[in-house]
Simulated assay, not measured.
Amino acid sequence: MPHVDYYFSTLSPSAYLAGTRLEEISARHGADITYKPLDIMALFARTGGVPLGERHPNRQAYRAQDMARQAKRLNMPINVKPAFWPPNPAPSSYAIIAAQNVGGGDLGALSHSVLRALWVEEKNIADDTIIRDCLSAAGFDADLADSGLLSGAETYAANLEEAVGAGVFGAPFYIVDNGQMFWGQDRLDDLEAHLSGDL
C-alpha cells in the first residue's frame, strides 16, 4: 500500500485550494496519508522562503491575482484577504494532531474545515470555539481541542524538523514513500499520475 506524508499549514491558501483531492486520490489508489501540520513561517526561515509581508509588492499583487484565478478554476470560493490574518496556526494544528492520534473521524474533512473557516468563512481559526466546531463536524470529539496540548506541540515541532530533513520548503507538500515529492495543490494531478505508474 503506498503512503503519502502530507506536510501543510493551516494558514496556507494553497492547502485550502487542494480541497479534499488528496483524500480522493488516495482512496482511488489505496494509499494512506499521514497529516503533518507544521509552522510554515519557521519552515520559510529554515529553507530560504520569505513570509508574505516581507515579499516585494509585485509578488504580493501577483499572489492575490493568482489565488483568485485558481479558486475560480476550481470552483471554490476564497477571500484573498481574510478577516483574521494571520491567525495563530498552532491551536488548529494541535487539534489535527490530536485527532490523528485518536482516530475515528475524517482527518481530511477536519483539515479542510479549518482551512475553509479561514479562507472562506472569515473565522479566527485560533479560536477554541471554531476549532471545536471543526472537530465535531468531522466526527471527532470537540474536547480534543483542549487535550494533548504538550504532545501536540512536540509533534508540531517534530513535523518541522522532519520536513526540513525530507526536503520540504513550502505547503502543501506531498511525499510518497518511494521519495517522490510534489509541491503545491497544482501538482496533485502529477501525484495521481505517479501513483498510477504513469509518471
Rank of each mutant, 00 (worst) to 15 (best):
L11E: 04
S12T: 14
S12W: 06
S14K: 13
Y16W: 04
Y16D: 02
L17F: 01
T20P: 06
L22R: 02
L22Q: 02
A27N: 03
A27L: 04
A27E: 06
H29C: 09
G30E: 13
G30K: 04
A31Y: 01
A31I: 01
I33V: 05
I33H: 02
T34C: 05
T34I: 08
K36N: 12
L38P: 03
D39M: 11
A42L: 05
A42Q: 05
L43M: 07
L43W: 06
R46V: 14
T47M: 07
G48T: 15
G49N: 08
V50M: 13
V50K: 11
P51D: 05
P51C: 06
L52C: 10
G53W: 09
E54I: 11
P57V: 07
P57F: 07
P57E: 06
N58S: 15
R59H: 12
R59N: 12
R59Y: 10
R59A: 14
Q60R: 12
A61S: 07
A61C: 05
A61V: 09
Y62Q: 13
Y62K: 07
R63K: 10
R63P: 04
R63G: 10
Q65L: 11
D66G: 14
R69I: 08
A71Y: 00
A71T: 01
K72W: 02
K72M: 03
N75K: 03
M76C: 10
M76A: 08
P77L: 01
I78F: 00
I78P: 00
N79V: 06
N79K: 12
V80S: 01
V80Y: 01
K81W: 14
P82N: 08
A83N: 15
A83D: 14
F84D: 03
P86W: 07
P86Q: 11
P87K: 12
P87S: 14
P87T: 13
N88E: 02
N88A: 05
P89Q: 09
P91T: 00
A95Q: 02
A95C: 03
I96D: 12
I96C: 15
A98F: 04
A99Y: 08
Q100T: 08
N101D: 15
V102I: 09
V102E: 15
G103M: 11
G104D: 07
G105D: 12
D106W: 01
L107F: 00
L110A: 08
L110G: 06
L110M: 08
L110Y: 08
L110V: 05
L110Q: 13
L110E: 14
S111N: 10
S111M: 11
S111P: 07
S111R: 13
H112D: 14
V114E: 11
